[in-house]
Simulated assay, not measured.
Amino acid sequence: MSSDLSGAVGAAFLAEGPADGVDLSLFGQFAGSWALDCTEYDPDGSSTVRRGEWHFGYALGGRATTDVWILPGVEHGVSVRFPDPSAGAGIWRSTWVGPTRRRTHTFLASRVGDEIVLDGGDLRWTFSDIGSDEFRWRNEARQPDGVWRLQQTFQVWRRS
């Protein structure tokens, strides 16, 4: 792709902020660049820690948020999220794409107490301990017996 075209795609996709009258604060609070430590938990109890980065912003004419997380050598994933009042008050739709591992996941997201929970049926992602300069994120999968197994955690801190 030529640099002119990639710049045009970025300019068409990204937005400076929310569109007038669109409340994107649930995920918009994360706008900016973050560093992270990702811990991946294997079923045998072993774990691996990797350093990564996460970038949040606004997209699609200011009607959605987007983010890209990068674990070098593992995955570059992108999410697009938007509020959907037709799904219920405070409900967001979220789609994540991870091309390296060839995965896509869809979720309904909402605030639950002090957390943001993304429910994907047998997959649950949770933002917790949310502060202005740091937060935690976890990825859990429902096992055949109905028990949730922790797959990943991110400790995340703001870079800009």
Rank of each mutant, 00 (worst) to 15 (best):
D4N: 12
D4L: 14
L5H: 12
F13P: 00
F13W: 14
F13C: 06
E16F: 04
G17L: 08
P18D: 02
A19F: 01
A19G: 03
D20A: 15
G21P: 01
G21A: 04
G21S: 02
L26M: 14
F27E: 01
G28W: 05
Q29A: 03
Q29Y: 05
G32I: 02
C38H: 08
Y41Q: 00
P43A: 08
P43G: 06
D44L: 04
S46R: 10
S46N: 08
V49Y: 05
R50S: 14
G52Y: 05
G52N: 06
F56K: 07
F56M: 11
L60S: 10
L60M: 15
G62E: 04
R63A: 09
A64W: 01
V68M: 15
I70Y: 11
S79I: 09
S79C: 12
P83S: 07
P83F: 03
G88Q: 07
A89N: 10
G90N: 04
W92G: 00
S94V: 13
W96N: 05
G98S: 13
P99M: 04
R101N: 12
R101P: 08
R101F: 11
R102A: 15
R103I: 11
R103D: 10
T104P: 05
A109Y: 04
A109P: 02
R111P: 07
E115R: 13
L118H: 14
G121T: 06
L123C: 10
L123T: 13
R124L: 06
W125Q: 12
F127K: 07
S132P: 12
F135P: 00
R136T: 12
R136Y: 00
R138T: 10
N139G: 13
W148V: 00
W148N: 00
Q152L: 13
F154C: 01
V156Y: 01
R158F: 01
S160V: 10
